[in-house]
């Protein structure tokens, strides 16, 4: 992994963190609340987690099996959170 790529990943992660905070602080002003905000937060969370797993943990160049374990965990946790949120809406 070259340094430039690592730096770019860090910048993207910082911007994504800012977006997460922004949704929490100002989302309501722009109509980004409820399930829409929830979906956006989960999507940002997945993008961030994927970058950490692939680029910081170094799984990008590793066999699919190992990547699928980490990304599968992220997807499973996101799905469970989404299901629980959906139950709470009822």
């Amino acid at each position: 992994m070259n340094t430039r790529h690592l730096n770019t990943v860090w910048v993207v992660l910082m911007l994504a963190t800012l977006a997460t905070l922004g949704i929490g602080e100002f989302g309501a002003r722009f109509g980004l609340t409820g399930p829409l905000a929830m979906a956006a937060l989960l999507a940002i969370c997945f993008v961030k987690g994927r970058l950490v797993a692939l680029d910081f943990m170094g799984l990008r160049g590793v066999k699919f099996f190992w990547r699928s374990l980490l990304l599968g965990w992220l997807l499973l946790v996101s799905a469970l959170i989404a299901i629980a949120y959906w139950i709470a809406l009822k």
């Binding site: 929490g24 937060l41 987690g49 797993a53 943990m57 170094g58 946790v77 959170i81």
Partner: peptide
């Protein structure tokens, strides 16, 4: 160094889920 680094990144990965879940959603 790669083993220790992987553990640290796991700690980071977990917080990436924890922060929006507990503080924002």
């Amino acid at each position: 160094i790669e083993s220790g680094a992987a553990y640290w990144h796991m700690v980071d990965l977990v917080w990436i889920v924890l922060f929006p879940l507990v503080y924002v959603m």
